[in-house]
Design a protein around this nucleic acid. Structure first.
Length: 202
DNA sequence: CCGCCGATCTTT
DNA sequence: AAGATCGGCGGG
């Protein structure tokens, strides 16, 4: 898995470098899922109005000021969870939001969690598309908040590998503030990337 | 303590 | 284009 030093870097650099890597959930169990990270956004510290860290280390955002490599999960709009990985050195705020991934293995369990028993059939690319859907498909909720991804045996890990060479950069989506900062990183032309795409297309 | 608001998603 | 739905945050 990736070492903590990787996550201690500059948040935008971590976000960009995370695209193209492989996420593993529940490794070694019957429900193991592997997924290719295709879309990530960076949320900075006190100078980023769109970041939960903007107002300082409140109860919810305190984890963003803590040690890198931990999971930050929060509830969005009362019904969806969003998963982040904390970045920057301990004491400095930052996190990267997992926005979309493509299932590599373990599709049946993901499909079951997303569709329920006998629901509408989703396309493979839609299973983990969107931050709320990604959490739903990977069974990530607030009980995973604070999880150390760098700890041996962690339920969620990032496989050591290399960053994708073809990454598109665009403005973050779905936010009200600081919409002009180019802190969204997507695997070029990958069908699992959420819309709108940084470059073009439908 | 109360009221608003959101890093979303689905449906009309 | 709008509603569901609830915890966190800020103001009073």
């Amino acid at each position: 898995m990736i070492d903590r030093g990787f996550f201690s870097q500059d948040t935008a650099a971590v976000a960009r470098s995370l695209v193209g890597r492989v996420l593993v959930v529940d490794p070694g169990t019957g429900g193991e899922v592997r997924a290719l990270v295709v879309e990530i956004e960076a949320y900075l510290g006190r100078d980023d109005p769109a970041s939960h860290a903007f107002r300082g280390p409140t109860k919810r955002a305190a984890i963003m000021f803590g040690a890198p490599g931990r999971l930050y999960v929060y509830l969005s709009y009362g019904m969806h969870h969003c998963a982040n990985i904390v970045t920057e050195v301990d004491g400095m705020a930052g996190a990267v939001l997992l926005r979309a991934a493509a299932v590599i293995s373990g599709e049946p369990v993901v499909r079951l969690r997303r569709e329920g028993p006998g629901g509408q059939r989703l396309s493979p690319d839609a299973l983990l598309r969107g931050p709320g859907n990604l959490c739903r498909g990977l069974a990530i909720d607030r009980s995973d908040n604070g999880l150390d991804l760098c700890a041996t045996g962690s339920r969620i890990q990032v496989v050591a590998g290399s960053a994708a060479p073809d990454v598109d950069v665009g403005c973050r989506v779905g936010i009200r503030h600081a919409t002009d900062r180019r802190l969204r990183f997507c695997l070029r032309s990958h069908p699992a990337v959420s819309s709108p795409r940084p470059q073009g297309g439908p």
